[in-house]
Design a protein around this nucleic acid. Structure first.
Lengths: 324, 324
DNA sequence: GCCAGTTACGAACCTCGTAACCATC
DNA sequence: GATGGTTACGAGGTTCGTAACTGGC
């Protein structure tokens, strides 16, 4: 058994069992992978992939288990490399952050500015995507951190730590009937067409819950994943915006009126997640603490030791999180 | 980085940094290992081993971390092999049990007889040793199971599950003054020279505690690790034996008198332990359940998911364990 | 001077890439 | 016929063992 073989089977799975595509992605030849995969199967005496003729059609049950462990191994190999780099290049390395538009645009810039000032030799890469893409990137090891609000709980391979609560605001243009109001009821809001985040995406569910709790059905005429896009359509008069309060910039958005809606919808919690068993560089701990000051290295290490999502939730049950 | 290199560094550590001995043990050449170790160090850019001249003197801090992860990886490589064997040879394989004399001699024979009858193709190997040797064998992966009463908690890499409680008996020859007594007090016992397990070994501490609790100091004139040895010296009239009740055979030991001492010393708990993250073959689950019927596969899997020793202890807090 | 690790070198083996071939859609 | 996997084969590199060498105790 070779590490290379484990890499190959893991990557073949990541490429939907397409060996040619895998080869291209790994800058190697297709026959090479094909052969190593079969050699591993021969050595183990089992089929990892089911085949119809020459095509790989599915992963066998035995294969599922093997691939799961192979991914653990490959993650730990990366950990060894990171341990070494921690000694050879203390303040140098990569930091891959997978997150949503809103976080990247409104929550992270301050932190990242400070961070790159402190760690000029750390190369920072941002990966944007849907919450599930984000979580998967972290679970696969493509990203060091996943920062998002929802869907993260679906990946049991991730350690997730709560960072902060946030609320929504209703946003309208200055000439809108609601513009003069300082407070709005859910019934009033329900009369207007809404412009808000894509349902099922990041942060929609609390909005739905807010309306349903009052026996109302929201009328969403336009939805998108990015607050900037939403604001643009609010400006066009398409409807009333319901967006994260932190996504309202007093300068840029001075042509809009924002009305706090924290009494209409329950707050959401943004979390930071990373792969279980992965080694965190010192600067990664530092990043976490800059992003969420209550998540000191000690706290993070304690949470890592717990490993279980429910236990970690309990650990933070009585911690007062910041509100943004 | 090659798996072979990880194997080498792990084995060099297991052989007290003696490369020649490692090479011999792995049936390979000393220069081969030496070279691969340095190649790995070069690749990682760190020293794993500290050297004075040509001798390896110690493991560096970075090395400690790397070796820890390397062992995880090697354990998972074994898991992959076991997964494969679970499919290719369902009722076939190896079972390595590390345990103490007493368990091997009195607790296990029944179970093992049944087990080899059910699984004739499983090769069973028993490794005897002190509790710490036993735990280490399991933690290193040399043994699948560690079965012992003490010292197992020192190894955080092990999952330990409680199997049964047991008590001690006072054992004397038929002509001894105590032979006619049906019950003994701690004060009476303190008047006689004792023959019992080596202190610090398996099961001594509860005996010490029993005496100290009454403000007494036991006078141990002879100690050994094996109940059979102890009984032999009781027969010679060297002293009064205090041994595990299960180590008294009504037939073989009919020349001795055993008096229950469960009211003098708190019971001990025998545990079964195995390495965290290791894959357990079906027959291994079966073995556990035969040895401790409350440890069904479900229960074991739940405990494995908890991972933490304290949490596992809580899990069994209200379980009534059998008494032997 | 002995023990233990390093350097040097050659044989055997393995990995990988190219090219030709073949199965499935 | 296009896509994708297997077989065949040769070049290049890697690993491993033997042998000679060298630094500590």
């Amino acid at each position: 058994m070779k590490l290379q073989q484990l890499r190959y089977i893991a990557e073949v799975v990541n490429h939907n069992l397409n060996v040619s595509a895998t080869a291209e992605n790994l800058y190697t030849s297709q026959p090479g992978i094909s052969k190593q995969v079969r050699m591993l199967e021969d050595e183990l005496g089992i089929q990892i992939f089911g085949r119809s003729g020459k095509h790989l059609t599915h992963v066998t049950p035995a294969g599922e288990q093997v691939i799961k462990i192979a991914n653990d191994i490959l993650g730990k190999v990366e950990s060894i490399k990171k341990v070494a780099e921690e000694y050879t290049k203390p303040d140098q390395g990569e930091l891959n952050i997978a997150t949503t538009d809103t976080q990247a645009r409104y929550a992270l810039p301050q932190i990242i500015r400070q961070f790159i000032e402190r760690y000029p030799k750390v190369n920072l890469h941002m990966h944007q995507g849907t919450p599930s893409q984000i979580s998967e990137a972290a679970a696969r090891g493509d990203a060091d951190f996943a920062i998002a609000t929802e869907a993260m709980h679906l990946y049991s391979d991730l350690i997730m730590l709560p960072c902060y609560h946030w609320n929504r605001s209703v946003v309208v243009s200055r000439d809108h009937p609601l513009a003069s109001r300082s407070q709005i009821s859910i019934e009033e809001l329900a009369r207007f067409p809404l412009v808000t985040y894509v349902f099922g995406f990041d942060k929609a569910s609390e909005i739905e819950r807010g309306f349903h709790g009052a026996g109302l059905e929201p009328r969403v005429v336009f939805s998108a994943t990015s607050a900037d896009v939403l604001k643009t359509y609010v400006r066009l008069g398409l409807g009333v915006g319901v967006i994260a309060s932190m996504a309202i910039d007093p300068v840029i958005d001075k042509d809009l009126v924002a009305i706090d809606a924290s009494h209409l919808f329950a707050h959401s919690t943004t979390k930071i997640g990373f792969r279980k068993g992965s080694f965190l560089r010192s600067y990664m701990y530092d990043f976490i603490e800059r992003f969420a000051p209550h998540l000191t290295r000690d706290v993070v290490e304690k949470a890592v030791a717990l490993r279980d999502a429910q236990l970690i939730e309990q650990m933070f049950a009585d911690v007062e999180l910041p509100l943004r």
